[in-house]
Amino acid sequence: MEHDCTTESVAGATLVTVRVRNEAPVPRRVRVRNELPGPVLPPRREGVPERGWDESGFEGVLDAGEERALGYACPVASEDDRPVSVASLGRDEAERAADRENEAIRALGRARPPADAVPVPGGSLARDSLPDDAGGAATSDDARRGDEADGTHVDDTHADEDASERSVSEEASDGRDRGPRPPAVASWLDAVETRVRLAERLTDATATDAAAVLETAGDVSGLPSTVDADETTLRTVAARASELADRAAETDAGPTVDSLVAL
């Protein structure tokens, strides 16, 4: 069994692509085992892994001379140049009896109410139409994809943030190193940044640009006042932050703490 393999690191995960060739003139069963230090995230349909995939990798029958491309993700960043091991399990004529239940789910599709339709206690389905959460688009995407066994998942974002807007925000966040930030602050800053970027795009915009923004962002009537309020808040926070940073710089608790610990 011949194989070659490529990996790609994306956002802390490794995407593994394996091409397996059965060069023998007979059908053979192959086992592709993940060697990365993390779980296998196999390709799924309707939430059910595709046929042949399990926790440790893939197993299936390749016809004589067949080449098959396989791919999975592993949620670890790895530079390992041998992410999989491929073993031939010998001659085998046919796929083993398929798992009919999973086959039925894959083929027919789950019939469950969409997340948006499920009322949540104390939650509201209607949200402010201004995009206020940069990471939110991915969340709602996940929910649409049919999240696993997570019935309480609350789809808390608007669906009308589309890919183009997302890619803009991704470019910006990838381009700059902003140092460590607490999660709450980070998400607030991201939200503000999304609004500011929108306002920048609308500043002295041509009709075409404005129309493009309107298409992706929906209702922007509240944007100017929100951005004004953002400016005030940001300046207040900035003043308070630099004041706190100055105070932090002047402290020197080290010697006292050391002597306390030594007690």
Partner: peptide, 12 residues
């Protein structure tokens, strides 16, 4: 509806 959404037909 919430129960129907949380139900995984794979367990049936």
């Amino acid at each position: 509806l919430a129960g129907a959404r949380a139900a995984d037909v794979g367990r049936l």
